[in-house]
């Protein structure tokens, strides 16, 4: 059954309004919960890879806040800036643009509880759009302190 023509503008306004509200409230595009489980890697899995001499070591990129990175980060990982900002995304794209698209890359943030993290989803989307095929996102349930530092996993400090 088709909608009468006179109601179609109202429907369009409603749809645009709903999308605008969703975008501004972060419902679409920014929620880490929307990342498929197949793209996630758990902290203990990453630690095993880092500690295994035979495993291919990933390029690890922290896409959150510099203040948090300076306090604690995964040794060997690079700070790139919050991917929720265009500046951070540009830095991320620039860092990886010359790499082979099969490069093993791990993105992580840990600023906030997983469902509230504004950074990992845009970062994952950016690499996906660039054609990277071997990207994993570190699943940090609560925050980097609780799910990495307090677990006793390796920690680096400073810039």
């Amino acid at each position: 059954m088709s909608l009468p023509i006179k109601f179609r503008p109202i429907l369009l306004i409603f749809i645009f309004g709903a999308v605008a509200i969703a975008l501004t409230s972060g419902v679409l595009g920014y929620q880490a919960s929307l990342i498929p489980a197949s793209r996630l890697i758990k902290p203990d899995e990453l630690v095993k890879i880092l500690q295994s001499p035979k495993s291919e070591k990933p390029l690890m990129i922290q896409v959150g806040s510099h203040v948090l990175y300076t306090q604690a980060h995964i040794p060997g990982s690079e700070y790139i800036g919050p991917a929720s900002s265009e500046t951070g995304l540009q830095s991320l794209r620039k860092r990886v643009e010359s790499l082979p698209r099969s490069k093993f890359i791990v993105l992580y943030c840990g600023c906030c509880p997983w469902s509230h993290c504004p950074n990992v989803k845009p970062a994952d989307d950016a690499l996906h759009a660039m054609g990277f095929t071997n990207v994993k996102i570190l699943y940090i349930a609560d925050n980097f302190g609780a799910d990495w530092v307090e677990k006793g996993y390796p920690v680096g400090k400073g810039d």
Binding site: L68, Q71, C111, C112, N143, F144, V149
Partner: peptide, 10 residues
């Protein structure tokens, strides 16, 4: 952050 035990999540 470190003074307050590490502010490693917000």
């Amino acid at each position: 952050g470190e003074l307050y035990g590490g502010v490693l999540g917000l």
